[in-house]
């Protein structure tokens, strides 16, 4: 293999009482890539991440980080990554500067080095103006930025991000994505969990889809989207007797199943460029339509698609 693995996860399992929350999950994360763990709430993403970052003991299975076992060499493994948790894991009661200072010191930096790194990170994450204010007055985005800054104190080459943009407004989310892309450019390996398909699509090189604790599917976002199918075109045929002619007309134009619910039709689209010819054909056949919409596949569709017959 040409690229080395940053992380190897094999047969990882965690039970809480009777419930198996993470069920025999195995995957590798290559150095320098963004690896996404995608799944709905309660799928086991965070539990998996917590085991990978030594916060939780696995019931079975093994995780190695740059070749070091997270159980046997926990301390060494811990020194090799930065972690940004789902809930802001910074101190609410103290200022941004104090947070960075304290975490720098806890990471083993000398007082002078800690001061220098704090100044650097405050600048890098545009937090200088609010550096000495209590975090209570911080916006969600600022808090996440500080959180990420704290994770980067030791310049780890491996960074874990647990739902980095959950609860952020679209603008702040885009800022976070830019920051993550910059980290990748600097050569970091990133493991992130997300419930947003769009986020996984935007950032991840490789994805593992997790549902009910099981690894359902792995691949690149492009591969997965192909599996799910693309967007769907939905519209209502205005006159009842024109529904069947419309279905017949479109069957020749698209691949995949056309779903019909009363006078509503849902047509799979491989590409958005298929839209004009379809509309043109309908117009030519003098079929009147209304309530037209194009729906991108949602995470729900992914799970519907991937877990059919399994549950």
């Amino acid at each position: 293999m040409s690229t080395k693995n940053a992380i190897e996860v094999s047969h990882l399992t965690k039970r809480f009482g009777q419930k198996t929350v993470v069920d025999d999950i195995s995957f590798n994360v290559r150095q320098g890539e963004v690896f996404g763990l995608l799944g709905p709430n309660g799928a086991g993403k965070t539990t998996t991440l917590r085991m990978m970052t030594t916060l939780l003991k696995a019931d079975a299975g093994q995780v190695t980080i740059f070749g070091h076992d997270t159980v046997k060499e926990g301390r060494l493994a811990r020194s090799m990554f930065g972690l940004t948790g789902q809930y802001a894991s910074v101190d609410e009661d103290i200022s941004a500067r104090e947070n960075l200072m304290i975490f720098s010191r806890l990471n083993g930096l000398s007082r002078t080095a800690a001061k220098q790194r704090t100044t650097e990170l405050l600048a890098e994450f545009s937090l200088e103006e609010s550096a000495d204010k209590a975090l209570k007055n911080f916006s969600g985005g600022m808090r996440r930025r500080l959180d990420l800054a704290v994770s980067l104190i030791t310049r780890p080459t491996l960074i874990f991000l647990d739902e980095p943009t959950t609860g952020l407004d679209p603008r702040t989310r885009a800022q976070m994505w830019t920051t993550i892309r910059q980290l990748v450019k600097q050569g970091s390996t990133i493991v992130l969990t997300t419930q947003y398909l769009e986020e996984a699509d935007q950032l991840a090189d490789n994805l593992a889809i997790i549902d009910h604790g099981k690894l359902v599917k792995m691949g690149t976002p492009a591969e997965l989207k192909e599996q799910i199918g693309g967007a769907r075109l939905a519209f209502t045929v205005s006159q009842e007797d024109q529904v069947q002619p419309a279905v017949q007309l479109l069957t020749g134009q698209v691949t995949g199943v056309i779903q019909q619910t009363g006078q509503q039709l849902s047509v799979p689209l491989k590409q958005i460029t298929q839209l004009p010819p379809i509309l043109a054909a309908l117009k030519q056949a003098q079929i009147m339509i209304s309530h037209l919409s194009v729906k991108e596949p949602s995470l729900d569709d992914v799970f519907m698609n991937l877990t059919v017959g399994k549950n």
Partner: peptide, 24 residues
């Protein structure tokens, strides 16, 4: 790789944590 290995200086860590709680 710029990973600072840490000797687990209990006294230093405790002092930092005490400082954190004092700040709080």
């Amino acid at each position: 790789m710029d990973v600072r290995m840490h000797k687990g200086n209990v006294v230093m860590n405790t002092a930092t944590m005490a400082y954190r709680n004092l700040l709080k």
